[in-house]
Design a protein around this nucleic acid. Structure first.
Length: 425
RNA sequence: GGAGAGAUGGCUGAGUGGUCGAAAGCGCUCCCCUGCUAAGGGAGUAUGGGUUAAUAGCCCAUCGAGGGUUCGAAUCCCUCUCUCUCCGCCA
């Protein structure tokens, strides 16, 4: 959520922010409800105060042995008025909360204008796309030749948008995951965590997936409120929900590996072939929890950690700043890392690194004592893929393919591959 | 799955209908005294919200969550969640 004070005092800024993102905000409806809330809350609290004072007076009168019957009658009537006010206040408050939960984060001032991914701004490039003296295959063909990726078997079991991996290709994905985790733990000072893959609605509300994006999630059919995680960002960021963290315990850096589950509703027809867009995929996720003044620097560091993985793997990539229209709901600013895929002859997203500012922290109730040791202040949260393992697998297969259909194993992964240097061939 | 116990402020722990946002102790912060690796004295020390120029006052709410009874609920009733112990089962 964005700061409710901002909504009250600078509503036009919020409207402008939503419009920059390509949305619309009915600010009149909000302003109306807010005005009503203000009046109602003052009245309700005044009534409550009167109720409390009278109740106290009744208690004391009773103690003195006086006749309290007339007092009780008056009090009962006042109680009814109060109950009406409370009910209306609750309804207005719920309306306001619903509006606020549906509002996207305020964009960082450095975020460029733009409507969609075409307007994203290139920050830097690393590496050179490999040149082949043969026609490079895409990962589907490579996987087929090596009998390592089996979409047909997956569709018999689970339908479209799933893959079965076999043999050394399956090992390669696991090697990628282990390599990424170890690198973040030993070189980037992350704490490894293991977290639930089923989470409840309130956790998803905390990170911003709910209430607005429920259709992207898999909900467990059950009397309980369980969802499959769409990203480890959800359980990991929620580690600090309802906490007041000592300021010297920050920054927190967590890393984990989880499967991710996405319904991909609304993406019919996109990336239907291959492993690019799956209902289930593996990802290594990094989460930072930092003091508010540190989040801009933390975003650069976080992005650097993800880049370091690509560098060690020798995969050419570029970094773009997402424009206003392409920046996610909860993010104030996002860098996407895009890896070169020779099979598609284009760069594709392999990591998304976001600074969410205090947006998630406010929803979760995650705070810290400021350096002055006084009032609790909201922490800032960041998350980034480091990296999406399924897409990293594709990138390795396509960039390291050889003419005979075999695939070289990047040096960094060989220790994780029982010393195997070439798959197939 | 069966049986039982519990959930109060940073921690321990009182509090079974009224002046309790909550005793006491510990911890922490500041001050005083004293002076030496100690002790003593004093003050302060929850969170969210409203009002406000205000992180000053004042007010409202919060004793696991939600509902109920009552003029009035930490205290009584109901439902739920979680934790702990024992038995059974299980990776």
């Amino acid at each position: 959520m964005i700061d409710p004070k901002l909504l009250r005092t600078s509503l036009e800024l919020v409207v402008k922010n939503v419009e920059r993102r390509g949305g619309a905000f009915d600010s009149d409806r909000f302003a109306e409800a807010e005005a009503r809330r203000k009046t109602l809350q003052v009245e309700t609290e005044t009534l409550r105060k009167a109720r409390n004072e009278s109740a106290k007076a009744i208690g004391m009168a009773k103690g003195r042995g006086e006749d309290i019957a007339p007092l009780l009658a008056a009090q009962k009537k006042a109680g009814e008025t109060l109950a009406n006010h409370e009910a209306e206040l609750e309804a207005v408050t719920r309306t306001l909360t619903d509006i606020q939960l549906g509002l996207p984060n305020m964009l960082d001032e450095s975020v460029p204008d733009g409507k969609n991914e075409e307007d994203n701004v290139l920050v830097r490039e690393w590496g050179t796309p490999p040149s082949f003296d043969f026609d490079p295959l895409d990962h589907i063909e490579i996987g087929e030749k090596l009998a390592g990726i089996d979409f047909e078997a997956a569709s018999r079991i689970s339908g479209a948008r799933f893959a079965v991996l076999r043999g050394q290709i399956a090992s390669l994905q696991r090697a990628l995951v282990q390599f990424m985790l170890d690198t973040h733990i030993t070189e980037h000072q992350y704490q490894e965590v293991y977290v639930p893959y089923l989470v409840q609605g309130h956790a998803l509300q905390g990170t911003g997936q709910l209430p607005k994006f429920g259709e992207d999630l898999f909900k467990v059919v059950d009397e309980r409120d369980f969802y499959l995680i769409p990203t480890a960002e959800v359980p990991v960021t929620n580690l600090v929900r309802d906490q007041i963290l000592p300021t010297d315990s920050l920054p927190l850096r967590f890393v984990t590996h989880t499967p991710c589950f996405r319904s991909e509703a609304g993406s019919y027809g996109q990336d239907t072939r291959g492993m690019i867009r799956q209902h289930q995929f593996e990802k290594v996720e990094m989460v930072h929890v930092v003091n508010p003044e540190d989040s801009a620097d933390a975003l650069e560091q976080l992005t650097g950690h993800a880049e370091n993985i690509l560098k060690k793997l020798g995969l050419p990539y570029r970094v773009v700043t997402l424009c206003a229209g392409d920046t996610g709901f909860g993010a104030a600013k996002t860098y996407d890392l895009e890896v070169w895929l020779p099979g598609q002859k284009r760069y594709r997203e392999i990591s998304s690194c976001s600074n969410c500012g205090d947006f998630q922290a406010r929803r979760m109730g995650a705070r810290t004592r400021g350096s002055d040791g006084n009032k609790p202040v909201l922490v800032h949260t960041l998350n980034g893929s480091g990296l999406a393992a399924g897409r990293a697998l594709i990138a390795v297969l396509e960039n390291y393919q050889r003419e005979d259909g075999s695939v070289a194993v990047p040096e960094a992964l060989q220790p994780y591959m029982r010393g195997v240097t070439v798959i197939g061939g």
